[in-house]
Design a protein around this nucleic acid. Structure first.
Length: 216
DNA sequence: TACCAGGTCCTCG
DNA sequence: CGAGGACATGGT
């Protein structure tokens, strides 16, 4: 199985995905937390709720003020805003943990001075942010070459006979097989999500129509 | 109706 | 460690 061939095949099939959707880095971070084990459609509802209340910026300007505004919300209010995403009790805490971290570290610009390893370690030490969310923020917010492994990716690899021990092993497996290129990382992760949603479904995979069934 | 979704944490062995 | 359960709403 050649992962690079798979990447090119998927890019050709689905087209460029241009992830991560959102008007600002702050929005991407919050979206990455909210989407944990839920549907992106649910996240869109929550993001709309934030924007209606003027709690998220439409560009990168003054994002720390917006971060502070969200942080200052009472938990019950924040819960109400993110309710459509499910798991709101834990996600409220995760969002606040992250915002506290962002504000205390004086924003993305300061954090961006850290090395890849330092930054990832800091992100992952925030309660509620695990491997995948940390990598999503690394890649789509800080533009670091840190490949994001979703459950879709693991399922797809397993169905192609790749059975590894844990998240980091899957991450390393992919990273050593494709060019260390930010845009490739961004697109490939998004494309694998499309494969998962459209073909590599949990219960009834549609392998006959899958663009990468050639590599099975 | 059940099951699934762009996970993470906690508890037990 | 690693397996297994809890967390919760919305769509099919």
């Amino acid at each position: 199985m050649d992962l690079w061939d798979i990447y090119k095949t998927l890019l050709n099939y689905f087209g460029k995905q241009n992830w991560w959707p959102g008007d600002s880095k702050l929005e991407i971070c919050i979206g990455a937390i909210l989407v944990q084990n839920t549907n992106w459609k649910n996240v869109e509802k929550a993001i709309e709720n934030f924007k209606k209340l003027n709690l998220l910026p439409t560009d990168e300007k003054n994002y720390l003020k917006f971060a502070q505004k969200i942080y200052n919300l009472r938990n019950e209010k924040l819960k109400e805003i993110i309710k459509p995403c499910g798991f709101y009790n834990s996600k409220v805490k995760t969002i606040k943990n992250f915002l506290k971290f962002l504000i205390e570290n004086k924003g993305f610009e300061e954090l961006n001075k850290l090395s890849d390893k330092e930054l990832r370690n800091k992100l992952i030490s925030i309660k509620g942010i695990g491997n995948e969310t940390a990598d999503a923020i690394m890649l789509y917010v800080f533009n670091r070459a840190s490949f994001v492994i979703s459950n879709y990716t693991i399922r797809i690899l397993k169905r192609h006979g790749i059975e590894l021990k844990n998240y980091v092993e899957y991450k390393n497996f992919i990273e050593i097989k494709i060019p260390k290129d930010i845009e490739v990382y961004k697109e490939f992760h998004a494309l694998l999500v499309e494969v998962g949603k459209n073909f590599c479904k949990k219960l009834n995979p549609i392998c006959e129509k899958c663009p990468i069934n050639f590599y099975l």
